[in-house]
């Protein structure tokens, strides 16, 4: 007769979940604490006062419009770059990869300075002559400054998104009679839709928080290039902490509403 088989005691899972939840809670708690701290400084009246100001309403609208335009532009660029980087190997790919990461790793101020210098060079002047408008410290500068940074994040998201899409389905589409463009538009792009929504929300959120490059390249001109982060900076620079905090809370609210809507829209399946 064999000995009775001993049941191996593997111990409790509680320490595992305690550690996971504990570590996660540190960050969630920090974010929540920051928002609560803001709410203790700015009263409801501060928020309504801020919203009553024409300049601040302009900054809110400019932020919403410029971020949306930046998001659209970023997607137009991020989708082809993401697709090419995901699907093809080519000479110089490592260099292109490194270039695409530069806006992510560079200090934001440096991006602003680089844009400013670029538009002082003959090529920048030629572009401005062609468009018939000056760009630095004007409205388009806000969008260019946001685009320079936000697009890099959208590109990274789209590369990861295309990496997850099986190229086999695209190949099947080619054998079924598609050109590359048809296979891309009718098979790959619909599959990439959730990735595009994620890229769009990341680009939008990154643009909304953009401050350094806008300050350097577009300035902080009231009723012209002032966006919400600029407002926070301007209010803080004149010692109006309540006003700065009120605008910060408005920004948080706007961002949460847009991101929740975008995620809900993006998580919907395209197949009924």
């Amino acid at each position: 007769m064999s000995e009775k088989k001993r049941v191996r005691n593997v111990g409790s899972d509680i320490p595992f979940f305690t550690a996971m939840i504990g570590l996660g809670a540190v960050y969630v708690g920090l974010v929540a604490a920051m928002l609560i701290a803001d709410a203790t400084v700015a009263s409801w009246t501060d928020i309504t006062d801020a919203l009553a100001q024409r300049e601040i309403r302009y900054a809110i609208w400019l932020s919403l419009i410029s971020c949306t335009m930046t998001t659209v532009l970023s997607l137009w660029v991020a989708v082809p770059i993401g697709y090419l980087m995901s699907r093809y190997e080519f000479r110089g790919k490592a260099l292109v990869n490194a270039l695409l990461d530069i806006p992510i790793v560079l200090p934001p101020l440096v991006i602003g300075i680089s844009l400013l210098i670029l538009f002082q060079l003959p090529v920048g002047k030629f572009l401005q002559d062609g468009l018939g408008t000056r760009i630095p410290f004007m409205l388009p500068a806000v969008i260019i400054a946001q685009f320079a940074v936000a697009c890099a994040f959208a590109v990274r998201t789209m590369v990861a998104s295309f990496d997850r899409i099986d190229p086999r389905r695209e190949q099947v589409a080619l054998t079924l009679g598609c050109t590359r463009a048809q296979a891309f538009s009718s098979v790959v792009l619909p599959e990439a839709r959730p990735g595009m929504v994620t890229a769009a929300t990341i680009a939008w959120a990154r643009s909304l928080g953009e401050f350094g490059p806008i300050l350097v390249f577009a300035g902080s001109l009231r009723m012209r290039t002032e966006v919400m982060p600029t407002t926070v900076f301007l209010e803080l620079s004149v010692g109006n902490l309540e006003g700065a905090t009120a605008v910060s809370l408005i920004m948080v609210t706007v961002a949460v509403i847009v991101l929740v809507l975008a995620r809900r829209f993006g998580s919907r399946r395209s197949l009924a």
Binding site: R169, V172, A173, T175, L176, C178, V187, P190, E191, L271
Partner: peptide, 28 residues
């Protein structure tokens, strides 16, 4: 090009188009 060869191709996992119904896959 693959599109011009007139070869029907069925890969290992079927590779159906996930954003389309069966009807749309068949009629693609």
């Amino acid at each position: 090009k693959p599109a011009e060869r007139g070869i029907g191709y069925v890969p290992q996992d079927g590779a159906l188009f996930p954003t389309m119904t069966v009807r749309e896959n068949l009629g693609f």
